[in-house]
Amino acid sequence: MTEDFITFRNVSKRFGKNVVLDDLCFSVRERQRITLIGPSGSGKTTILRMLMTLMRPDSGLITVGGDQLFPADEQQVARVRRRMTMVFQQYNLFPNMNVLRNITMAPMKVLGVPEDEAVDRARKLLELVGLTAKLSHYPSQLSGGQQQRVAIARALAMQPDVLLLDEVTAALDPELAAEVLDVLRDVADSLDVTMLCVTHAMRFARDISDQVLMFCTGKIIESGPPEQILEAPQHERTQRFLRSVLEEV
């Protein structure tokens, strides 16, 4: 029995009157691949943003790897945050740096990795995402799918324990989305990383995750292995949600 790696205890968050997370409790084991699904506004992205410390809960307790992430002082936050990284819907590459620099900058500046080692690692990661030829290109010269693959490489260069993926294919057309999802499948296969993934790509959820959490209005209403949740959902709301997602495709 592996211990819980990430835990949320009674975490609440509201924006004005709008309750985003309602006394949420859940936990993730090390190297688990979790997919968070549910209608928009149900709090999935909020969970990722809280883990990345881009957003603070109103109350509750969050721990990562046994260390408290919330509540915690700034130093502690910075230390715990270092174990995680995030890939965003809009890629958010740094447009003032070329592909190589986007990937090597943080490892060098934050982790103190020597330049030749950082470059070496970046080359390997670019191989993994299939973009070795684009090393010295700038983000504006890349397609959306390519930018997202660079963003994945940038995230992995930080050698995270936890990879947070926030609707990483939502801004891409289906063909480009497929190439990003292929890359993520390889990542999931080749790295021992804990993954939390918010997505509407149900095939992908089924392929890579070992657990699916269904969110609705700030609560988890159903959870279990993907074949159970996606193919035989028990909750009426989950059934309705999956029907609408599948119709869309």
């Binding site: 990345m52 270092r82 990284t85 995030m86 890939v87 900058m105 943080a106 934050v110 930080m158 947070l164």
Partner: peptide
Amino acid sequence: PPGQWDAATAVNLSRGQ
């Protein structure tokens, strides 16, 4: 865009960096 700040936080850059 705020996404640039988010991305910088996600790779653990300090505010000054």
